[in-house]
Structure formats: structure tokens, C-alpha cells
Simulated assay, not measured.
Amino acid sequence: MAKLNVADLRSEAATRYAALELETEDGRTIVLRNLLRLDDAARKTAQALLGAFAKKASGKGGKGKESTDDLAELDAQERAITDFLLLVADDTEALRDLLADFDLALKMALVEHWTEATQPGEAQRSAS
């Protein structure tokens, strides 16, 4: 009969569905959790926010001059990104303080790093 230890299962899930640890300039660590590690409500909200700024990012572009609508869309995109990052953070207040000093490019870069870090790893091959 196969046996599974819950501590091993938790460790495996933490490795397979990793978070991104963000080290701040003052030495604190803020954990940006994987979507699969959030509760249902938070996960649904996070997915909606991801969809909102993904649509904006792939929307209009290359027009030359920015219109008022384009600037409003950038503002909405930045709010969605900020809300998303705060939702996945284990220390919302610390991240809120940090994001206050981030421009949109830094926030986008952080989301890109989070996306890369939280992609499920490939299953380990058996040693057969």
C-alpha cells in the first residue's frame, strides 16, 4: 500500500507551485504567492485583474500621440496591476509602500517576473 506524508505533500506543493520572493532594499522579503495558493475568491479576483491588464496591454498601440483615452487606459492598467500585486502579496502594507515608488514599467517588470516564477515546473522524470 502506498503511503503519503502530509508534510511531504505540502513541501512538494510549495516547490511545484512556487511563489516569488521579492527582497526589498531594506532587507525585508515580500512573498508574491502563486495563484493556486490563494483561496477561491482571491484567485477569481486575481484572474479578473490579470485579464483586465492583459487586454489593455494588447489593445491600442502605435498611434503616435497619446490621446486622453490612452492615458486613462494606462491609469486603469496601472491600478489593475497594483491591485493584482497587492492581492498576491503576503505583506500587503509592505508592498503598498514599495509600489508607491514604482512607475508602471517597474510594476510590469515585477508582474513578468512573478509570471515566470510561478509557472508550474515540469514533472520530475522517474529514474527508470
Score class of each variant (00 low, 15 high):
Met1Arg: 03
Met1Asn: 00
Ala2Asn: 11
Ala2Met: 13
Lys3Ala: 09
Lys3Pro: 12
Leu4Asp: 01
Leu4Lys: 12
Leu4Gln: 01
Asn5Trp: 04
Asn5Pro: 09
Leu9Arg: 06
Ser11Ala: 01
Ser11Lys: 07
Ala13Lys: 10
Ala14Asp: 15
Ala14Gln: 14
Ala14His: 14
Ala18Ile: 14
Ala18Ser: 05
Ala19Lys: 05
Ala19Val: 04
Leu20Thr: 05
Glu21Trp: 15
Leu22Thr: 04
Thr24His: 05
Thr24Met: 06
Glu25Ala: 09
Arg28Gln: 05
Thr29Pro: 09
Arg33Lys: 15
Arg33Glu: 14
Arg33Gly: 10
Asn34Gln: 02
Leu35Gln: 10
Leu35Asn: 10
Leu36Asn: 03
Leu36Ile: 06
Leu36Cys: 06
Arg37Ile: 14
Asp39Lys: 03
Ala41Thr: 04
Ala42Asn: 02
Thr45Ile: 11
Thr45Asp: 07
Ala46Lys: 08
Gln47Tyr: 08
Leu49Gly: 02
Leu50Trp: 07
Gly51Ala: 06
Gly51Thr: 00
Ala52Ile: 12
Phe53Thr: 01
Ala57Ser: 12
Ala57Gly: 01
Gly59Ile: 06
Gly59Asp: 12
Lys60Asn: 06
Gly61Ile: 09
Gly62Phe: 15
Lys63Gln: 09
Lys63Ile: 11
Gly64Ile: 04
Gly64Phe: 05
Glu66Pro: 07
Glu66Asp: 10
Glu66Val: 08
Glu66Ile: 13
Ser67Met: 04
Asp69Gln: 05
Asp70Ile: 00
Asp70Phe: 10
Leu71Arg: 07
Leu71Cys: 10
Leu71Val: 06
Ala72Phe: 07
Glu73Cys: 02
Ala76Asn: 10
Glu78Tyr: 00
Arg79His: 10
Arg79Phe: 12
Ala80Lys: 03
Ile81Ala: 04
Ile81Gly: 10
Leu86Gln: 01
Leu87Ser: 07
Leu87Ile: 08
Asp90Cys: 02
Asp90Met: 01
Asp91Asn: 09
Asp91His: 01
Glu93Ser: 09
Glu93Phe: 15
Glu93Cys: 00
Glu93His: 13
Ala94Asp: 07
Leu95Pro: 05
Arg96Glu: 13
Asp97Trp: 13
Leu99Arg: 14
Leu99Ala: 12
Asp101Pro: 14
Asp101Ala: 15
Asp103Gln: 03
Asp103Tyr: 01
Asp103Gly: 10
Ala105Phe: 02
Leu106Pro: 04
Leu106Gln: 07
Lys107His: 09
Met108Phe: 13
Ala109Thr: 11
His113Arg: 14
His113Glu: 08
His113Ser: 12
His113Pro: 01
Trp114Cys: 13
Thr115Lys: 05
Thr115Asn: 04
Gln119Leu: 08
Pro120Val: 02
Pro120Thr: 00
Gly121Ala: 14
Glu122Arg: 15
Gln124Arg: 10
Arg125Tyr: 02
